[in-house]
Design a protein around this nucleic acid. Sequence first.
RNA 1: GGCCCGUUCGUCUAGGGGUUAGGACGUAUCCCUUUCACGGAUAAAACACGGGUUCGAUUCCCGUACGGGCUACCA
Length: 519
Amino acid sequence: MSDHATAPVRVRFAPSPTGALHIGGVRTALYNYLLARQTGGTFILRIEDTDQNRFVPGAEEYIYEALDWCGIPPDEGVREGGPYGPYRQSERKHLYGAYAQQLLDSGHAYYAFDTAEELEEMRERLTKEGVPNPQYNYVTRMYMKNSLVLPETEVKERLERGDAYVIRLKIPRKEEIKFHDLIRGWVVFQSANLDDKVLMKSDGMPTYHLANVVDDYLMKITHVIRGEEWLPSAPLHYLLYKCLGWLDVMPKFAHLPLILKPDGNGKLSKRDGDKLGFAVFPLAFTDPETGSVTSGFRESGYLSEALINFLAFLGWNPGTQQELFSLEELVQAFSVERIGKSGVKFDIAKARWYNQQYLHQRASEDLVQFLEQDLVRHGISATQAQMVEAIEIVKEKVNFPTDFWAEAEVLFIAPRHFDQALMEQKWSAELEVVLASFKTALQGLETIDATTAQQLFGASAEGAGLKPGKVALGTRLALTGKGAGPDLWRLISFVGPAQVAKRIDHALEWAKARLPRVG
RNA sequence: GGCCCGUUCGUCUAGGGGUUAGGACGUAUCCCUUUCACGGAUAAAACACGGGUUCGAUUCCCGUACGGGCUACCA
């Protein structure tokens, strides 16, 4: 495919460890991964933990577990190491100062000593004066406490005294900033609309912007694929590359369309999942502060291939009619050029469909674990062969492996309750005759296959002068207590002749005691 | 409010100056089925609006409307 990037790329996924990995983040990671695999490049995981206030213990482990489960692990990162480490920004703290200094020396940045209160005051004043967008910029910086306006001696004094300060980028007053985005084409900003963003915080940590640009540079990143929420800060990043003299190696940008709420408007959030009753995280996450658990796709019974396929198609498509793609096929077919521009609504129904597709095509042997859990929970022991057979019987009927038990329960446990209304409707003296006859037919049999079960039952019904179809539902009720369930003959085969006979007896007794008139 | 991005069936999308605007999910109906599903078939369903450009715009341009993002010493 000619529109594919051919040179090996170096791409990164750079989440901050502030909680569970959002499903949009997984998609971003996936696209990065696909491009890396396709070009024989490198997929890097960099942890952006420059804000120690928002650090959440366990979040980094969660990110790794999620990527592993999805089958898209990084090539370089805090776990796997690599030639450009460390891959945790907090551990790279010592690296950023030099670049801030370079910016200071070249006049592209300056010290600012303003307190939070002073900044607040400035914004309030400007708002009152009717300034639409109060910001620290080429006008307002002249009225603030910074090295651009303070006498040189005072700046030196403050620095030596250890006054708290930040380093801000001196945004040019009037400059058109134009850069190319792989998805959106040329994007133009006016520097006058930008503000003098903080590069170095007063705690000595860089902000996202500086760390991100410096690390992408040092790690030789070739393509930055990230969410559209970063588009407004892209001109700032462009300026940083420019002021640092790195324009010739600036990565190509691709800003992904956002994943939106399924109903109303806005970005998909954790709350939407809670509200609409589906997962928005790959894995369940326990908030270490509150202890509250949020469910994940994995725990909801999604197969990772289904999630990946679903996610890949949220904003991208191959331009063909093919909908089902394995990870390997995605690697082959993916191209940044075919990523859409507009936000996409999150449609859980489509995810369910994908899950069903993958569930049905997966070998029953590989699904045993899902049934086993529930069997154990109910204290039922079953052989491997029995479990595989049970899954064979119920697999086509469910969307999630977590539904196996609900569907397979009647295979393992004799009914304790019968559907009263249906029984009253379907039970008859004729049925009792057929049941008794069928029971006799089963007598002495060790096992029975589905076909034989059907034949034997047919003979029993016809022996009573009835069409088998007329008493089939009643028989189902007798054997399972319910009006719907697995294929009757396969069920009989699975349960076995002896057990079926017992169930028939039980149903007969129940009918005697609980049904008004059996005439 | 300001800046930026976007707009084809309900949803994900294909397409692209002249098409019966294609597919998938979902929905409905039918078939298959001695249940429920699966599977198969059919149906309803879209180019936001207004101006240009053009012989001709859903497609190109400009506005408007609507939606979204950003607007922190958060990422």
